[in-house]
């Protein structure tokens, strides 16, 4: 019985990764019909269920169809650069700015903010306090040589994590610090198996919470805030970009209606995102604080 249960559990955990496969099939297919918008976004955004909740409204009112390509931020930006996507919804401020400054994308529009949390085993070997500063919590992990699973995939979460470490000892080169190069769900799974700590976005966390023995051990530091931006790919670089579609999506998602919807979105009865389209100042300030990279 236990095996059956865990089989189902594992299949459930793994399911999202396989369900993604058909989405990849759209990758690189150039669609001449300008009714289709190719949105490259991060796995964490897609996993949270926000887009499935939000986009049907847009598709109905605008007549566009949105193809979601859920990949790591690094790949998403690359796709934008290569003209394989029309519009990007990502959360890696420093990389985004570089992307826009290099002329690959048009302009960054703030969409929403959520936050990251530090999760780990119930036993909490590094003795982390829930309300301490995140840098201090990470320092404790390094001091105790506890296992930390890093995304290691250049994703927004990975970049965020790297920006938070202040440790100067050799922890990152030790066997306790493990770069695994996998998606957030898989990383949470590995952390649970290995009694390890990891940094996760709250969206994925809420989706996995019920299936994992891990607990939130630190949250709330402003440095853990995570701003999302939407960027249209520069139409001057590629003629087959659906630029009107991208603009339509951007103006809709930053509109008051969509922003209200975002603010009402819940996962397991928890609000997940704070709309930020009208708080340009706040987000730019956040970017400065967290430094991206």
């Amino acid at each position: 019985m236990k095996l059956v249960k865990s089989t189902i559990k594992t299949i459930l955990i793994l399911l999202p990764f396989y369900i993604q496969q058909p989405v990849f099939a759209d990758d690189g297919v150039t669609n001449n019909s300008n009714k289709i918008i190719r949105l490259a976004t991060t796995t964490s955004t897609d996993n949270s269920g926000l887009l499935a909740y939000l986009l049907p409204t847009f598709e109905q009112t605008s007549g566009y169809r949105v193809h979601i390509i859920a990949v790591g931020t690094g790949k998403a930006l690359r796709m934008g650069r290569d003209g394989d996507a029309d519009v990007l919804l990502v959360h890696a401020p420093a990389a985004e700015m570089k992307f826009v400054n290099a002329g690959f994308g048009e302009k960054r529009y703030p969409v929403m903010v959520n936050d990251f949390v530090l999760v780990g085993p119930l036993s909490n070997p590094a003795n982390i306090k829930i309300d301490s500063e995140i840098s201090y919590a990470l320092q404790q992990i390094a001091d105790h040589k506890s296992i930390f699973i890093s995304r290691g995939d250049n994703s927004g979460t990975h970049k965020k994590e790297l920006s938070l470490w202040k440790t100067k000892n050799n922890y990152h080169k030790s066997k306790a610090y493990r770069e695994v190069g996998q998606g957030m769900g898989k990383v949470l799974q590995m952390a649970a198996e290995l009694d390890a700590y990891t940094l996760t976005d709250r969206g994925t966390w809420l989706a996995f919470q019920a299936k994992t023995p891990l607990k939130i051990l630190n949250e709330g530091d402003p440095k853990l805030f995570n701003p999302y931006h939407i960027i249209a790919v520069n139409p001057e670089r590629y003629s087959n970009i659906n630029y009107p579609g991208a603009k339509a999506l951007i103006s809709w998602i930053t509109s008051n209606d969509a922003q209200t919807l975002i603010g009402q979105f819940t996962v397991n009865n928890n609000l997940l995102f704070k709309p930020s389209a009208n708080e340009t100042q706040l987000t730019s300030q956040l970017v400065k604080e967290t430094g991206g990279q």
Binding site: G72, K75, L77, R78, D153, K175, G181, Q182, K186
Partner: peptide, 23 residues
């Protein structure tokens, strides 16, 4: 293996990862 750098990351999992990173 879990694709852990310097431990269980092998050629095929690394290729999958580098591609997903766009590198």
């Amino acid at each position: 293996g879990g694709n852990i750098l310097n431990y269980t990351r092998n050629i095929p999992t690394a290729i999958a990862l580098e591609t997903s990173k766009g590198e």
